[in-house]
């Protein structure tokens, strides 16, 4: 399994759009920055055919230190979740690793 990083995405912009490498990575950074800013402000970010990033408010609950068994309150907090679009789910399963042909 390979891991793609910023460099790979910037390279894709460079080859697809024909901007300079520097500008390609600057634009990638702008996109990530804009999305982050919206989410930090509590706003959902919806990218059609990709998915939706949602900020969810979680209430306080009682947790437990698994090592010591001591109860500790988990404070109310905001968490970020991602809901993939149907299009993305389909693409990921369409060309996913080959499944066995044998009937189960």
């Amino acid at each position: 399994m390979n891991t793609l990083t910023r460099a790979n995405l910037a390279e894709a912009i460079y080859t697809q759009v024909g901007l300079s490498r520097n500008e390609s990575s600057a634009l990638l950074e702008s996109v990530l920055h804009r999305v982050s800013e919206a989410l930090a402000g509590g706003e959902a970010v919806k990218i059609a055919a990709f998915g939706t990033f949602l900020v969810r408010q979680k209430g306080q609950r009682i947790g437990r230190n698994p090592k010591t068994g001591v109860e500790v309150p988990i404070l109310p907090r905001k968490v970020l979740t991602f809901r993939p679009s149907q299009v993305m789910k389909a693409r990921i399963n369409g060309a996913s690793p080959p499944l066995d042909d044998d009937a189960a």
Partner: peptide, 17 residues
């Protein structure tokens, strides 16, 4: 391109960090 590349990577079984 950005969002397509991420989806394509996942479809190949790769991850994007």
């Amino acid at each position: 391109t950005i969002f397509d590349e991420i989806t394509a990577a996942l479809a190949r079984g790769d991850r994007v960090e």
